[in-house]
Amino acid sequence: MKVTGDQALVKKINKSIVLHTIRKHSPISRAKVSEMTGLNKATVSNLVAELCNEQLVTEAGPGISSGGRKPLILHFNSMAGSVVGIELGVKQITAVLCDLGGGILEEIHRPLDNHQLPHVLGEMKGMIASLIATAPNTPYGIVGIGAGVPGMVDENGVVLFAPNLGWEMVELRALLEKEFGVPVTVDNEANAGAQGELNFGVARDIRHLLYISAGAGIGSGIIIGGELYKGARGYAGETGHMSIEADGQPCSCGNRGCWELYASEKTYDQPDLHLPARTTPELVRYAEIGQEDALRHFNVMGEALGIGLTNVINSFNPELIVIGGTLSVARDWLIEPLQRVVAERTLPYHKQQLQIIFSELGSRGAMIGAAFAAVMHFLGDTRVTL
């Protein structure tokens, strides 16, 4: 198929390239932007002038001279606007107000023990409104809201199926846009977490990444060739519902033996266990003082995480796996059994140069990634795919 574009489209693409080059690499000179993008200096100067007029880029200087006049240095104006990122979890809702560069300005948390839509929507609206009220005065104000949810989401922001919430066909984007009058992006929380790690965490510049969101359930954000992979209809990454036990426990999704039944916080609810606590932070405190039941349970969970990871490693051959979500605080007790199982079971060529690390963003990764999706919707990312 032939792809054609007029001069206006070419300019739009080039402007997007220049803006995102400055966003990623500022402070940066015009000459460096020209070198990195392959655009000639005159084109870069004209596009930078437009971006400065739009208050998305600022100039400061002078920079270091290589022999001639000292150049002015370009900065991405992260305070041109702000966004709200919110993660809807099974046990809590967390939300942040961010600048356009991903910097956290405010953060709030609320527990969640009622999954009925009116209650959850009321809580989300209250948290978003509270953050908007604290937003600084900026040229563009609140430019968008990004939400990460534990379920399957379509391209229209409809939550098709969220088994851990008991939701089906919830038009979340439309409901929030009607309330706040700004663009809303909605995605699976693991996809949001992958974007958070790729842009602000330990996975920057990684081309082939698996982000594992481990908490009340398990989901995966898959980055292939530097791009988020969503599958044919946008639902890829539901690895928490792959079977690791053929005749295992029944799951709320309708399957049996799902990975998240053995490697997530769902394991705490098993009645035959003698755990000293039923939440990850509390179990971590017991593990820190050497309580045997807590240590034993984290070891079993780590092994189960390793079994599931072996399957996704053999399937996707990533260069990096980042484990985030609320279970990331238990890293010290999960990492050894997890890595031992992966070493024993993974195909030898797949584990060469593979790194498995826990997120430095921790449980914040998904809401930061959701906020980033709202930023990108505002800034635009115009490209041509052949």
Rank of each mutant, 00 (worst) to 15 (best):
K2M: 05
K2A: 12
D6N: 14
Q7G: 09
Q7M: 15
L9G: 07
K15A: 15
R23V: 10
R23G: 01
P27L: 14
P27R: 11
M36G: 06
T37M: 05
T37W: 07
L39R: 07
N40V: 07
K41D: 03
A42I: 14
T43W: 07
E50C: 06
Q55F: 12
T58K: 10
E59W: 01
E59T: 03
G61D: 02
G61R: 08
P62F: 12
S65F: 00
G68M: 02
P71T: 10
L72R: 15
I73F: 06
E87F: 03
L88A: 01
Q92N: 14
Q92P: 03
I93R: 09
I93D: 07
A95D: 11
C98Y: 04
G103A: 13
H109M: 11
L112F: 06
I128N: 11
L131V: 04
N137R: 15
P139N: 04
G141V: 13
V143H: 09
V143M: 12
I145S: 03
I145R: 13
I145Q: 05
A147K: 12
L160E: 08
F161I: 01
P163L: 09
P163S: 12
L165I: 06
W167Y: 07
W167C: 08
M169R: 07
M169E: 09
M169N: 04
V170I: 11
V170W: 11
L172N: 02
L175I: 04
L176D: 08
E177R: 11
E179P: 06
V182I: 10
D187W: 02
G193A: 03
A194H: 05
E197T: 05
E197N: 09
L198R: 04
D205R: 10
D205E: 14
I206N: 04
A214W: 00
A216M: 10
A216P: 05
G219W: 01
S220M: 00
I222C: 01
I222L: 01
L228M: 01
K230Q: 01
K230W: 05
G231H: 07
G234S: 09
A236S: 12
A236V: 12
E238P: 05
E238F: 00
I244L: 09
I244N: 02
G248Q: 02
Q249I: 14
N255P: 11
R256E: 10
R256P: 08
C258R: 00
C258H: 06
E260F: 03
E260P: 02
K266R: 15
T267A: 14
Q270F: 15
D272H: 15
L273A: 15
L273I: 10
L273N: 10
Y286D: 13
E288L: 14
E288S: 10
G290H: 15
E292V: 15
H297D: 06
A304I: 13
L305R: 12
L305H: 08
G306F: 11
L309I: 13
T310R: 06
F316T: 03
N317Q: 09
V322P: 05
I323R: 05
G324M: 06
V329K: 09
R331S: 00
L334P: 02
I335H: 00
E336M: 13
E344F: 12
P348S: 09
Y349I: 13
H350E: 04
L354T: 11
Q355V: 03
Q355L: 12
I357S: 13
S359D: 01
S359Q: 08
R364E: 02
G365Q: 02
G365A: 15
A366S: 15
H377T: 14
F378N: 04
D381I: 05
R383Q: 11
R383E: 13
V384H: 08
